[in-house]
Write a protein that binds this DNA or RNA. Structure first.
Lengths: 230, 230
DNA sequence: ATAGTTAAGTGTTTAAAACACACTTTTTTT
DNA sequence: AAAAAAAGTGTGTTTTAAACACTTAACTAT
């Protein structure tokens, strides 16, 4: 009836791979890196690395993201652990996928320095190594579920944004068109936005009012959850 | 800019721990095992084991569940990977939690033979080793979310069941009281139940009609999802 | 100056779903 | 024959979702 004793033979390498979502110009994007070591050197890949003995997975994800992008204080969440036996042909590795949400407009300068990384539109991202495309799908499904059950946007939009941007973000995540009036009515019913005096003049002559999130109310809604259905 | 090369030093043991939910006599239950090896020998623990080199995590979960309970063909799903550095004081291990759903009434005979395992009411389960209580919470949250977004019950109830049992299951999972009429109306609107001629006489003089799931329609609903809100 | 263009902004009506709510039936027990 | 215990059944009200179109503001081109 003994099920297990610690058996050093079965030790494996644990990888962390990051699905980094961003949003810019009405498009959902994903940050990829050109892999510079074997196997699959030169191909596009998620940003990843290995868990070290002295850290937990959340810390590893933060470290790996920081190391490859210079970014700090980024929202990250564990998605799923992938373990197909031959997923990495070079060595038995298991990989824990994390997704990150980034406001590209704010962070782009830090990122541009970093050489072999690149933002792709999610829709025309290249084929990735190993099982990374499956990871992206799974993370995307998670992001979609999150958008339906809690407010989203704080991590992906600049501090000030227009209603149109917010709507386009939801449309990109949910992959659907939404009615302008219904969207605004619905979102206002959550009571987490603050309307500013300022206008954004970049996309129309008339200008569109800027909004920001009421951080406290936003957080409360993230805790409590809601049902976004529109 | 190199982020990682394979480093054997960082290999870890990957455990799989199973949160096994069952339902009997209007109560949600969880299957625990008295641990028979160090550390923490003699304490109650989730059923667990270690991933082997030649299998993926889903397979490991199935194997471990089978090995400790004799059960086969049980619904299982990965929940989350736990990685606190000192979660197991004896050795650096990472553990992937899986939850399983079992119809106790049908499987109890197979289980009773197995000695050091025991069904506890979820509400008065003992303190568990390591971070197993956190795992149970996380699995419970997942089960709750599942119950709100897809039909549940096929895996937890006997083949034939009464409306009352089904309602009690939902009440136990969602930890709330539901209105009998609204529950039945709602559930019937999903059109996944088949009403049988037979009655269950065990809990009333009048007897209560038995139902079973229409497997095909049930599966379709699991795929498509729905919004249970009552 | 005037007509045309472009995006912003704004409410109402209809349909569907959620919710609250109470009495009757069946059968056994005393 | 009355009491008890669980099963079974429907309606009205409220809330939420969904469909839908015109006006405003500011610039551009003639």
């Amino acid at each position: 009836m003994i099920l297990s004793t610690y058996n050093k033979e079965d030790k494996v390498l644990l990888a962390v791979d990051c699905i980094i979502f961003g949003f810019l110009k009405d498009e959902l994007k994903i940050l990829l890196v050109k892999r510079d070591f074997e196997p699959e050197k030169g191909k596009w890949s998620l940003i990843g690395g290995f868990l070290k003995k002295i850290e937990n997975l959340d810390k590893a994800a933060i470290r790996i993201l920081h190391h490859l992008t210079g970014l700090n204080n980024i929202y990250m969440e564990q998605v799923y652990t992938f373990s197909k036996v031959d997923r990495d042909p070079a060595e038995r590795t298991i990989s824990v996928a994390y997704y990150a949400l980034i406001d590209i407009a704010t962070h782009d300068k830090e990122l541009l320095k970093q050489n072999p990384i690149h933002w792709f539109n999610l829709k025309d991202a290249p084929k990735l190594i190993f099982d990374h495309n499956r990871m992206v799908e799974k993370a995307m499904a998670r992001l979609r579920r999150r958008a339906l059950s809690k407010p989203i946007g704080f991590e992906l939009l600049p501090e000030k944004f227009t209603m149109r941007q917010l709507q386009k973000l939801y449309e990109a995540i949910l992959d659907t068109k939404l009615d302008k009036r219904n969207f605004i009515n619905k979102f206002n019913s959550f009571d987490i936005l603050i309307k500013l005096e300022e206008k954004d003049m970049s996309s129309s002559k008339k200008g569109a009012y800027l909004f920001k999130f009421d951080q406290e109310k936003y957080n409360r809604k993230v805790e409590d959850g809601f049902n976004f259905k529109i």
